[in-house]
Simulated scan of single mutants.
Amino acid sequence: MNRIKEVLDKKGIKQIWLSEQLGKSYNMVHSYAQNKRQPSIENLYKIAEILNVDIKELLISNKTDQNTK
């Protein structure tokens, strides 16, 4: 799962702009933002670079509180 939509909203950036910067169709970026498809690791790094964020900000952790067992 990713947080691309949340990061775009937080930064006030439109999906169409990201699609142009990434060289992908709007439909593909929209699918990423809606979590219908997941970008490859390579594309995730490109998205992080374009948005000027740490790649970790684009991902939802697979771990809950690590102090809870």
Rank of each mutant, 00 (worst) to 15 (best):
N67H: 05
S40D: 12
I55G: 00
N43G: 07
N62V: 11
L58G: 01
K46L: 08
N52G: 08
I13W: 00
W17A: 04
K56P: 00
L51N: 15
S25K: 08
M1N: 08
A48K: 03
I13K: 03
S61W: 01
N62S: 08
Y32D: 03
K5S: 11
T68C: 02
K69N: 14
E57G: 04
I47F: 10
D54P: 05
A33V: 08
S31W: 00
I16L: 06
T64L: 14
K5V: 07
N35A: 13
Q66T: 02
E6A: 11
D54K: 15
K14C: 06
K46R: 10
D54H: 14
I60E: 15
Q15V: 14
S31N: 09
L8H: 10
K24H: 09
G12P: 06
E20N: 10
N62L: 08
A48P: 06
L22P: 01
I55A: 02
S40E: 09
G12Y: 13
Q66H: 02
D9Q: 05
K46G: 01
N27Q: 13
N52E: 10
K63W: 01
R37K: 12
I50A: 07
Q21C: 15
M28S: 11
L51F: 06
T64G: 15
N27L: 06
T68I: 05
Y45L: 14
N67P: 05
K24M: 13
I55F: 07
M28H: 04
G12D: 15
K69T: 11
N2F: 01
V7I: 10
S25G: 14
I47W: 03
K24L: 15
R3F: 01
P39R: 10
K63V: 09
S61E: 11
L51A: 15
N52K: 04
N67Y: 05
A48S: 09
Y32W: 06
I55S: 04
M28I: 09
L58F: 07
A33N: 02
S61H: 03
D65T: 05
N52I: 10
K14F: 09
I60T: 10
K56I: 14
N35Y: 05
M28T: 14
E49S: 07
S61M: 00
K69Q: 11
D65R: 00
A33R: 01
K56L: 13
E42D: 12
N27V: 07
L22K: 01
I13G: 05
K11S: 13
Y32Q: 07
I16G: 11
T64R: 03
R37M: 12
Q34W: 13
W17C: 01
N27S: 12
I41P: 05
M1Y: 01
T68S: 06
I55D: 00
D54C: 10
W17D: 08
N67V: 15
V7M: 05
K24E: 10
K24S: 08
K63A: 10
Y45W: 08
D54Y: 13
N52C: 11
L58K: 02
I60P: 02
N35D: 12
L58D: 02
I47M: 13
G23V: 13
V7S: 13
Q34F: 07
L58W: 10
K10P: 02
Q21D: 14
S31H: 03
L8Q: 10
Q66I: 07
K56T: 10
I13E: 05
N62H: 01
Q38W: 09
L51C: 15
